Amino acid sequence: IDVRFTVNGLDVTVRVRTEEIAERVKELAKNGVDWREIQRIAEELNK
């Protein structure tokens, strides 16, 4: 599942395995978490 969001004007796409992880990623993006941090968290959750 590809999750797309915009952080500080940057369009970011993170690929995740499940809808649940996708929701977590969207939540982080909404809360203004840095995209590199979101990427790292997504990689952890995908394991």
Rank of each mutant, 00 (worst) to 15 (best):
V3Y: 01
V16N: 00
V7I: 13
K30P: 01
V12T: 04
N46S: 07
A42M: 08
E37V: 09
R15H: 15
T6I: 13
L28F: 05
R17N: 14
V33W: 07
K26Q: 10
A22E: 05
R4F: 12
A29Y: 15
I21T: 03
T18G: 04
I38W: 01
I38P: 00
V33R: 07
L45I: 04
A29P: 01
N31R: 10
V3Q: 01
R40T: 10
R24V: 14
D2G: 01
R40A: 13
T6Q: 15
Q39K: 12
G9R: 01
R36V: 14
K26H: 10
E44Q: 11
G32F: 07
L28I: 06
K26T: 11
I1Q: 05
G9V: 01
R40I: 12
K47V: 13
R4P: 04
K47Y: 08
V7R: 04
V7Y: 07
T6D: 14
I21M: 08
E43S: 11
A42W: 03
K26M: 13
A22I: 02
D34A: 07
F5N: 03
E19T: 11
G9S: 04
I1H: 08
T6F: 06
N31V: 10
A22Y: 04
E27D: 12
K30A: 14
L28S: 03
V7Q: 15
N8H: 08
I21S: 04
R15G: 05
W35D: 03
L28K: 02
E37P: 01
R4E: 14
V3K: 01
I1K: 04
R40Y: 10
K26I: 15
A42S: 06
V7L: 05
T6V: 15
D2P: 03
A42D: 01
E20R: 08
R40V: 11
G32L: 11
L10H: 14
A42H: 01
T6G: 08
V25Q: 00
A42Q: 01
E23C: 09
R36N: 15
V25H: 00
K30R: 14
Q39W: 08
A22H: 04
V16I: 03
T18K: 02
V33N: 07
E44D: 12
I21D: 10
L28R: 01
I41V: 11
I41C: 06
A42R: 01
L10R: 09
E43C: 12
A29V: 15
G9E: 10
E44R: 08
E27Q: 12
K26S: 09
K26V: 13
A22P: 00
D34W: 03
D11H: 14
R40S: 12
E27Y: 04
D34T: 06
W35M: 13
E20Y: 06
L28Q: 03
A42Y: 05
R36A: 15
R4L: 08
V33K: 08
E27V: 08
E20C: 11
E37K: 06
R36D: 13
V33F: 11
R4V: 15
A22K: 06
R24Y: 12
L10K: 12
D34M: 05
E23M: 11
Q39G: 08
A29G: 06
T13M: 08
I1D: 01
V25N: 00
N46P: 03
E43G: 09
R15T: 15
V16D: 00
E23L: 12
G32M: 10
N8F: 01
G9I: 01
K47T: 12
R4C: 11
I21G: 04
K26G: 06
N46L: 03
D11K: 07
E19W: 07
E19P: 13
R15I: 11
L10V: 14
V25D: 00
V12I: 15
F5Y: 04
A29I: 15
D34L: 05
L45C: 04
E19S: 12
E23G: 10
T18N: 12
E44N: 10
L10Y: 12
I38E: 00
T13L: 07
W35T: 08
I38V: 08
D11R: 05
Q39H: 08
L45P: 02
L28C: 05
K26W: 04
I1F: 13
F5E: 04
D11E: 15
E20N: 09
E20A: 13
W35H: 09
V7A: 11
T18W: 02
R24A: 12
I41E: 07
N31M: 13
T18P: 01
E23S: 11
R17E: 13
K30T: 13
V25I: 13
T18Q: 02
D2C: 10
E23Y: 05
L28W: 03
G9C: 06
D2H: 07
I1N: 02
N31W: 06
V25A: 02
I1P: 02
F5V: 15
R17P: 09
E37M: 03
A22M: 07
T13P: 01
A22S: 06
R36F: 14
R15Q: 12
N46E: 05
V12S: 02
D11I: 15
N8D: 15
G9F: 03
F5L: 15
V3S: 01
K30W: 06
E43T: 10
E19G: 10
L28A: 08
I1A: 03
R40L: 13
E27S: 11
I41P: 00
N8A: 09
T13R: 05
T6R: 11
R24F: 12
W35A: 11
D34V: 02
A42G: 02
L45V: 03
E20T: 09
K30D: 13
E20V: 11
T6K: 12
T6H: 15
A29D: 03
D2S: 05
F5P: 01
D2F: 07
E37C: 07
V14A: 02
T6N: 12
E19F: 06
W35Y: 13
E43P: 01
R17C: 07
I21F: 07
V3N: 01
R36E: 13
Q39D: 05
V3M: 06
R17Y: 10
I21E: 06
R17L: 15
T13E: 09
D2T: 08
E43D: 13
V33E: 08
I38K: 00
E37D: 12
A42N: 01
D34Q: 07
N46D: 08
I41A: 06
V3A: 02
L10T: 14
G32R: 05
D11L: 14
V3E: 02
E20D: 13
K47F: 13
L45K: 02
L28T: 01
N31F: 07
V25M: 08
R40G: 07
K47S: 15
V25T: 02
K47R: 13
G32S: 08
E37Y: 04
T13Y: 04
D2W: 06
L45H: 05
L45M: 15
N46A: 05
E27M: 08
Q39V: 15
R4M: 13
